[in-house]
Design a binder for these strands. Structure first.
Lengths: 200, 200
DNA sequence: CGCTTTAGTGAGTAATTGCTCACTATCTTA
DNA sequence: TAAGATAGTGAGCAATTACTCACTAAAGCG
């Protein structure tokens, strides 16, 4: 059956969604253009009417991820009453995002693995850099407000923040159970919080 | 030039080393049998005289990793004077291992991504499970010795321990600078330590 | 040394992958 | 509604990949 023609922009958006859905259940590196097309009920050739190359598809996907994740995280932080509350809100927003789109962390990490400097990899890097920047700013504010230890090593604490999330994701990949993240997230964050409060 | 014939066992060991070296500089998923062979100055066909399939090569590699990592970590833990000292020793031993073999974390994470249940993936999982087990045991001992908070959530603390390492690795992949791990590791561990000491 | 076993070669193969293109169906709009 | 623009099809191409095999060189051993 012939696929219904969609406006180019819409088709591109649908493509990005298809990739994100596929990444939830298989190794991003093994997602072929044929698989993407078939998942959206399209022939493979049609994809190349909307993207000049497979790399361009990945680039669009990473753009989607970067935009959405940062926007949600910023919104969550803005509504919080204090720096530490903001950190906690960011943490849980990130966890929510990941459970909604399990493919995302796999793609991010997968991109970072790549040897060649593709545009998608560049986007992944800037996303993580901007993310870290936000965390560091919140930690600084927390220090100023006396909510975290005055002696806290901000850079290390930011690394650990991201690592905390990374550890949860890895654990859930091990267990093959995404919902596990939701259960464990508050418990792990509690230890992190104790760390940045009492670090010397 | 014809490669010097090696005894089968030696050739297999050399192959495993070649893979680990290659994984240090490129995405493990993109390591082809041709690349492995050329890196050890052999023709591709020769590989299949020693391994029945590419999967079998990966299996051998994961065995190598699991054995070495656990052995070193156990040795480090055994020599420590107290549970918390052991945790710290394990942490730094792991960091050392990773800086010596940068390809290892990439392969481990890459294996976990795989959709199909290959033997290599199974090995990666059991390695991480056994690793977590050891961490939990040390944390329990630390609790008994009064070195860490009596209220500590052991499971969450173990997840965070692995995440701490994961965060460091990711950060260094971002920066493209492996040595960075060495510099940051003690700083990040200090915060972790403060966390498990004062968690409530 | 001669003979058997073992390991390496290199030319293949079948399958898969990203990508192209001539053609066709559908949409838009004058 | 006619015509041009837009989007989808499906066959096919070139490159790559894991894997095979008949042959050859080297190692080990009596």
């Amino acid at each position: 059956m012939r696929a219904k023609p969609l406006p180019a922009e819409t088709r591109r958006a649908v493509t990005v969604e298809a990739v994100i859905e596929l990444a939830a259940e298989r190794d991003p590196g093994e997602i072929t253009t044929a698989a993407i097309a078939s998942h959206m009920k399209l022939t493979q050739g049609a994809l190349f009417r909307h993207f000049p190359s497979k790399d361009a598809i990945w680039e669009a996907v990473m753009e989607w991820v970067a935009e959405r994740l940062l926007a949600r995280v910023d919104r969550a932080a803005a509504q919080a009453a204090s720096p530490v509350a903001a950190l906690q809100a960011v943490f849980h927003t990130h966890v929510d995002f990941v459970t909604e789109h399990p493919g995302v962390p796999r793609m991010l990490f997968g991109e970072l693995q790549r040897a060649e400097a593709t545009p998608a990899k560049r986007l992944a890097r800037t996303l993580l850099e901007r993310y870290g920047e936000r965390i560091r700013r919140l930690l600084e504010a927390g220090k100023a407000a006396g909510e975290v230890s005055a002696a806290l090593d901000i850079e290390a604490a930011a690394t650990l923040f991201v690592g905390t999330l990374q550890g949860l994701i890895m654990q859930s990949m091990l267990a093959g159970d995404l919902l596990r993240i939701r259960r464990d997230a508050p418990r792990v964050f509690a230890i992190y919080l104790a760390g940045i409060r009492s670090a010397t």
